[in-house]
Design a protein around this nucleic acid. Structure first.
Lengths: 351, 351
DNA sequence: CTGAAAGCGCTAACAG
DNA sequence: CTGTTAGCGCTTTCAG
């Protein structure tokens, strides 16, 4: 199956390749008759111009790299979808680069990020957006920073919900601290005083920011968070189960739990159910992220929406502007939003 | 920022571009000293060969197109992850092509599929894997079939959990009918006789196959499915809520519900909870797919695993073989598996 | 309105 | 072990 090229079309149409190129790209006027002859041949052979050759000369590929930590974590498909809907409108196609790493693999997550950044540049993507991994670390390795800096010098590079210290990279992000304040205030308004905060990783900046928000909201209400109710280092359902089980075994125990993400909150729901503790009657649980499933648990999860889809959409829009060398703000901030559902309720008197 | 090329390296190293290419690709022996000189320059300039140029001549890009219907549907990230882990091992990068379409968009899902297929071929992908959309239709438009046939003639093309009538395309798929048989038998073994089957779309072949499995398992036990308990045309949580609410209002009502996917089952759980019907004591619910969340609902969902990740993994493996022009079976069949958790129980006597 | 010709950046014979 | 030389398939001046 010989692949047909502009030359084949040109020859059969008795024109030069330049003319074929012109009708292909509508880049210069072509006599109607000639144009139709060429179009007919294109149709006849189902001719599709080779995008590689085209990109090689045009120096733009219409391809973007999207780096994220784990597509099976329900938060990420949501931002990806937001990004997708917007990016495709503008004619971009994107490489999905999942940096998830199992223990059996030779490369860890950060090494894979490095690998992908480099790979994407070789593929000549028009831009890169990155999410998670090293940009969530509060103190990433200098080498990790340098790599991204380097890359950003060569190609538009956008960080989503994360940042790299000391580096003025473009980013779009939700205000993580504010989200935590919202969650905590909600609990406070329901009369809770004994509030635990579980989940997250102490080495991650998102966790630190959320915890900051929690503490500051507590303090503003004259409350001092209890150390033994602050259980960190886990973002999974299993971790949520574990943290909550521990909490429920304590004396005194909290009347409300602020979970640093929805997965942990789902684990909390599970642990409460196992322990025979009713939610929200005996225990209020609030999550963070507002993943799709938060609306489907029983009871439905009260949570803070990080506006995942909006972050994604903005990312596509912003990256597009960067690619077009238009001016964009260094930081585009998105406001989180409290979503009240069923897992929180007023504290019981004399509980 | 002038981009550095093999020529720049060659000039500064006092060698020809061919030699640079040789050390780049390790494609022929190069004197140690020369090699080191070149490597040093590559390092110095952070030189990265342009993959477009390379692919243009090599006629292979290491790029794959992955077409799926909706990344926010939790089933798909799971097959994608399986695919991802395997594909990256083999050095592939892939374009994610989500064909989800809102009503506001000009193109519908099938048109978007067409667009992507064409786009991917222009980008010169080494292969395409497709999931959902037209290949799930029991009677797709002839034009839709022809397009895929055409594409498959030009590039390795693999269908996942679906097929196109009258066309011998390569596929890897789970046995959908068997999965339904497994689910139904499980319910039957628990003593259920009054079983409803809800969810799915009657125009989709996966639905037809699942329903076939259900009916055949029922009939083998001398049972006749009740028409009024077969509620179709919906694969969402909301649909599950709706179907189940209707079922619970009937008299007589079923003692068990076979949900054609987990999302519908989650809706069923919700509807039961709202109606004050306890699961599994008063009502058994079984799902289908085994998405991640099935293990996290309360009660945890009994379901049939479609082996999503395994499908994805096999897809990568198979497509790779096809790209390498190795022999592959037309159909690679994966066996579904019953996953018993908490949402099913023996039928109550005299219920 | 159209053609000739010069590349884009790289690889791959083919010589040496 | 290394250099020369054609291209890969397309776009884009520059003439006409």
């Amino acid at each position: 199956m010989k692949t047909v090229t502009v030359y084949d079309i040109a020859r059969e149409a008795n024109v030069s390749v330049a003319t074929v190129s012109r009708v292909l790209n509508n880049t210069a006027p072509v006599k109607k008759e000639t144009r139709e002859r060429i179009s007919a041949l294109i149709e006849k052979y189902q001719f599709q111009p080779n995008a590689l050759a085209r990109s090689l000369i045009r120096k733009e590929t219409g391809m973007i790299g999207f780096i994220l930590p784990d597509i099976t974590n329900p938060f990420f498909p949501e931002v990806l979808a937001g990004f997708d809907r917007e990016a495709r409108k503008m004619g971009y196609t994107y490489f999905l680069c999942d940096t998830f790493s199992t223990n059996e693999e030779t490369l860890n997550q950060y090494e894979r990020e490095s690998q992908y950044i480099s790979l994407l540049m070789e593929k000549q993507v028009d831009g890169i957006v990155m999410l998670g991994g090293r940009i969530d670390l509060s103190r990433p390795d200098p080498q990790m920073i340098r790599e991204v800096e380097e890359a950003a010098r060569r190609v538009p590079f956008l960080l989503l919900n994360g940042s790299l210290p000391q580096v003025g990279l473009n980013r779009v992000a939700t205000d993580q601290k504010l989200g935590a304040v919202l969650a905590t205030q909600h609990l406070l308004e329901l009369g809770h005083r004994d509030i635990a905060a579980v989940g997250g990783y102490s080495a991650m900046s998102n966790t630190q920011q959320r915890l900051q928000g929690f503490r500051s909201a507590m303090r503003e209400n004259g409350l001092q968070p209890r150390k033994e109710w602050m259980l960190q280092d886990g973002f999974s359902v299993e971790a949520g189960v574990e943290f909550t089980s521990r909490l429920l075994a304590m004396n005194p125990r909290p009347t409300a739990i602020f979970c640093l993400n929805d997965l942990v909150a789902i684990g909390a729901l599970k642990a409460a159910s196992r322990a025979g503790v009713r939610v929200p009657e005996e225990l209020s649980i609030i999550g963070y992220d507002d993943i799709q499933f938060a609306a489907n648990s029983i009871p439905e999860l009260t949570t803070v929406s990080l506006k995942a889809a909006e972050i994604g959409r903005l990312a596509a829009e912003t990256l597009h502007r960067m690619i077009g060398k238009k001016k964009v703000p260094k930081l585009l901030s998105v406001l989180p939003e409290l979503v009240v559902r069923q897992s929180t309720a007023a504290v019981r008197k004399g509980g």
